[in-house]
Design a protein around this nucleic acid. Structure first.
Length: 571
RNA sequence: CGGGGCAUAGCGCAGUUUGGUAGCGCACUUCGCUUGGGACGAAGGGGUCGAGUGUUCGAAUCACUCUGCUCCGACCA
């Protein structure tokens, strides 16, 4: 490819709309352009990178026995109504009607499509296991699209679905995909961690998120440096923290005027925050009040509460009237003295406290010397781990302090079990002739997000620094002055030689000044730049500059090709 | 949906307070000159000032409405 024929409109300045460095660079380097909020066009350079990422994904999916297919973007509502998700999915689903009034949606995901496809085709266990995937646009009408390709409404996703005859088979498929994802993101040159994730409403299975480590990421993860443990902040399991045992004092109600917050209570009563119990009141979709109690210095984890309370799907902050109705008092809430039937979830660590401070369900009053083991009616409350992890919490595997970091979720692997095969009635006959539901898994990768994450992780003040495997071109050949016949001719030869050797090369034959071209090269981030100058031609040497570290090598003409290929292996 | 900010040429911005000729830098076109880190000179092209309604002799500027973008909170690849 020649730069004079390449549509790569680089900008002098950053567009004002971009905030995140990857978003700014993608616009400035001419990789993408915005069409509408969360909707983008990919320009040639951006698309080349997308296609390289897709190719890596294809190779690794195929290596594990995946087969590529293509399903429709436009999906009939009937399948979604059958699985029950037409009603559940909400505003995030882009819906439409055809001229006859039939309802459709633009696919946000494809469990319904693949399951209904398979149920009418696959009849026997002999046809299993089966792994099918596609790389295609997905549509989710995000509440707030932002950060360019990081959170868009139309985005490219690889989604693979596995079908197995039993749970063991499903787990083998899961492990295959886990391994494939590890290879994919490694090949893309990313620093990432697979983290244990919550699999929400589906339950019972495994889920890992593949998270690229980046301070700008939207996900928060906890990880251990001593062992391999890593989990999303919502998922991280926490051990009970045992308090120092104390002689029990008798429960006492004290006046705490205007102390609505735990901070005010601890200051007013002059007790350490670790000796306080705080309450958070939620209501679920059915309006049921759910009261959660954690130690004063801890935060409640809503996901864990949802998992702990049967039938709860979403939580929102409780109305004050609901609290009053249950016998509680906002700001002074306590598990002691609530009406029977109120759902109370208490963090395990709270149950280990002695002589603590908690609300008294009366305005301006708190209890002191609360010892939950003695004072809470443990038969009527749910006791489990409901707190949010924080830096320094002990690792659930090895006990060492956990660290927290931020990351970008680029992929997720998920076991589904028979959730969809059951709701969509997809069955096969096993070796005993018995009808069984498929055991499924689904595995997604955000392709555009992977590109954005790579930039987020590999850039400097001059621009992008592409990992070789996903660079739009591996090498750029730049004649210092392309109007000079000798330089252009010499550059062409180098370009042809590298191309013949299988190196993905761009010839920057633009008749611009050297500085302009160098700046564009740095901005776009080709891993290697070869500069052709009169001096090099006279000496018959080739100047090779590494984008990543700025190193310059001068090679003899007869050896440069092998050297460049060697250098590329480490970029 | 709630709360803040913004909308003027492809990009970045001034002009709006105090109503009166549409501006600057970069980019673009042509010519000249220049070529190892975003040169220089000359001459040009490009705008229904986000949309609509109103006030006014006169609106980019004032008022109202709408739309879009963007940032902060609940979602997810």
């Amino acid at each position: 490819m020649r730069a004079t024929q390449l549509y790569a409109p680089t900008l002098r300045e950053y567009p004002a709309e971009a905030e995140l460095v990857s978003h700014k660079l993608m616009l400035k380097a001419g990789l993408i352009r915005k069409a509408a909020g969360g909707v983008y066009s990919y320009l040639p350079l951006g698309w080349r990178t997308i296609r390289k990422i897709e190719q890596i994904i294809r190779e690794e999916m195929d290596a594990k026995g995946g087969q590529e297919i293509m399903m429709p973007i436009i999906q009939p509502a009937e399948y979604w109504k059958e699985s029950g998700r037409w009603a559940v999915y909400g505003d995030e689903m882009m819906r439409m009607k055809d001229r006859h009034g039939r309802e459709f949606c633009l696919g946000p995901t494809h469990e319904e499509m693949i399951t209904t496809l398979i149920r009418s085709e696959v009849r026997s266990y002999k046809q299993l296991p089966l792994m099918l995937y596609q790389i295609q646009n997905k549509y989710r009408d995000e509440i707030r699209p932002r950060f360019g390709l990081m959170r868009s409404r139309e985005f490219i996703m690889k989604d693979l679905y596995s079908f197995d005859a039993d749970i063991d088979g499903m787990n083998i498929s899961y492990q295959k995909m886990y391994d494939a994802y590890d290879r994919i993101f490694t090949r893309c040159g990313l620093k990432f961690r697979p983290v244990e994730a919550d699999n929400g409403a589906i339950g019972g299975g495994h889920s890992h998120e593949f998270t690229v480590l980046a301070p700008s990421g939207e996900s928060s993860i906890a990880y251990c440096e001593s062992c391999d443990y890593a989990a999303s902040d919502e998922k991280a399991e926490l051990k009970v923290i045992h308090s120092q045992e104390e002689e029990l004092k008798s429960l006492e109600k004290v006046l705490t005027p205007n102390c609505h917050t735990i901070e005010m209570v601890k200051d007013y009563l002059n007790v350490p925050i670790e000796k306080t119990i705080k309450a958070v009141a939620f209501q679920d979709d059915d309006g049921r009040l759910i009261l959660a109690f954690v130690r004063g210095d801890h935060e409640v984890n809503e996901i864990k509460i949802l998992n702990a309370v049967e039938g709860a799907l979403h939580l929102h902050m409780a109305e004050e009237s609901a609290i009053t109705e249950a016998g509680g008092c906002a700001g002074f809430m306590s598990p002691i003295g609530l009406k029977d039937g109120t759902i109370v979830v208490v963090d395990s660590t709270v149950m280990e406290m002695y002589n603590a401070v908690a609300g008294a369900n009366e305005v301006d009053k708190h209890y002191i010397n609360v010892t939950p083991k003695r004072d809470f009616n443990s038969e009527k409350i749910i006791i489990t781990d409901i707190r949010m992890v924080k830096e320094g919490d002990p690792c659930p595997h090895c006990g060492q302090p956990l660290k927290m970091t931020r990351g970008i979720e680029v992929g997720q692997v998920f076991t589904l079990g028979n959730k969809y095969s059951k709701s969509l009635n997809a069955t096969f006959l096993d070796e005993n002739g018995k009808e069984k539901f498929f055991e499924m898994g689904c595995y997604g990768i955000g392709v555009g997000r992977t590109m954005a994450a790579a930039i987020e992780q590999h850039n400097d003040e001059f621009g992008i620094i592409w990992p070789r495997a996903i660079a739009p071109f591996e090498v750029v050949v730049v004649p210092v002055n392309a109007k000079n016949e000798d330089q252009l001719e010499y550059s062409e030869k180098i370009y042809e030689e590298l191309k013949a050797a299988g190196v993905d090369t761009l010839l920057d034959d633009r008749r611009d000044r050297a500085g302009v071209k160098f700046n564009d090269c740095d901005l776009i981030g080709y891993p290697i730049r070869i500069t052709v100058s009169p001096k090099g031609i006279a000496e018959d040497t080739v100047e090779v500059k590494i984008r990543k570290n700025g190193e310059v090598h001068i090679f003899n003409r007869n050896e440069y090709k092998d050297k460049v290929i060697e250098l590329l292996k480490n970029l």
